[in-house]
């Protein structure tokens, strides 16, 4: 299967010492068509910035310093501004974390969806309205006819997120970037939205880049997982690989600290320390300051990617040395 999206060495910098702070530092990943890739990591590790870089919507003064982003057979980063605008929403769509503020408060939601449709397709107003109606029922909005004429403030958070999803799907994008789609919603609604995304993905066969720190959502939705720490991807693999055979100490720490797996009555294991801010990222492996298995090379050299087979890759000195010695034996 050919990759729909291929990202190589993507680096995004914000003004800072030297060349600037690499908030996203040499990120590589790919998404096959019809595949859900989850990008997981703690707050501030660069997940959202990676997503915004893909859309070339990095907030100022950030800039994409280097790297390649290929969508289908087009190079996204070298596209003209106008070509990029046609890609956004049309081939790549995005839904945001905050459904509360992601809709224009003074425009009826139906009109906002219709505008999204008419932006990329030359259809009449009534045809667009009909499509919006279909989309509303497709994303499970009850009484869609009446909801088309509602203002955002008349809808609940869950309904607003459904409207956002309808808007993002309106032009049948090949890739949906969902930036923490469930974080701002309460738990019962989260489950509904996750189920909705899964059903839509299956029905339409689209690819999703799911950005989240909720491992439950990852487990439910994703085919493959990329774990990000301090601007770098530290481990990639299939969902089974990551959940059943995690290799990177950070991934293991994340999984251990999942409340769903907690033993009642015992203290929930945690990863010691806090995420270092970009100005104090350590040399070598960036996780070295918090890693329980740290040894000498970790503090000096940036770890190399070790291929563990079947797309399972890990950037860790510990994994590299154990694999090499295993090969040698």
């Amino acid at each position: 299967m050919t990759a729909l999206l291929e990202v190589k060495g993507l680096t995004a910098r914000f003004p800072g010492p030297g060349e600037g702070l690499p908030i996203v530092d040499g990120v590589d990943f790919h998404i096959d068509s019809g595949e859900v890739l989850a990008l997981v990591g703690e707050s501030g590790c660069g997940k959202s910035m990676t997503a915004l870089s893909l859309m070339r919507l990095l907030p100022k003064p950030g800039r994409i310093a280097s790297g390649r982003v290929r969508l289908g057979d087009e190079e996204v980063l070298s596209m003209s501004v106008n070509a990029m605008r046609r890609v956004r929403g049309h081939r790549m769509a995005m839904i945001f974390q905050e459904p509360m503020t992601s809709l224009n408060p003074v425009v009826r939601v139906g009109k906002q969806v219709m505008e999204a449709i008419r932006l990329h397709e030359d259809v009449s107003r009534s045809a667009a309205r009909l499509r919006s109606l279909e989309l509303f029922s497709e994303v499970g909005i009850p009484d869609p006819e009446a909801r088309l004429d509602a203002y955002p403030h008349q809808l609940s958070g869950g309904l607003k997120q459904r409207v956002m999803i309808a808007m993002a799907l309106s032009t049948r994008p090949e890739l949906l970037i969902a930036d923490e789609p469930t974080t701002a919603l309460d738990v019962t609604i989260q489950a509904q939205i996750v189920r909705l995304l899964r059903d839509l993905q299956r029905d339409r066969g689209m690819s999703i880049l799911l950005i989240t720190h909720d491992l439950g959502v990852v487990n439910e939705l994703s085919d493959r997982v990329a774990v990000m720490y301090a601007g770098r991807i530290v481990e990639t693999g299939s969902r089974q690989d990551i959940f059943k055979r995690p290799r990177h100490p950070y991934t293991r720490g994340l999984l251990r600290s999942n409340p769903a797996l907690a033993v009642p009555g015992e203290r929930l294991p945690e990863i010691q320390g806090v995420v270092p801010s970009p100005v104090e990222w350590p040399q070598g492996c960036r996780f070295s300051t918090r890693c329980s298995e740290v040894f000498e090379p970790c503090r000096i050299d940036v770890p190399q990617t070790t291929n563990l087979g079947e797309g399972h890759r890990c950037d860790c000195h510990g994994v590299t040395s154990s694999t090499n010695s295993g090969d040698g034996a």
Partner: peptide
């Protein structure tokens, strides 16, 4: 505001964002 970012992510032009949002 997020709906302006959302509009940008949908590919609305700068002029469109000013006029519509």
């Amino acid at each position: 505001l997020e709906y302006v970012s959302a509009a940008r992510a949908l590919g609305v032009s700068e002029f469109g964002i000013i006029v519509r949002h």
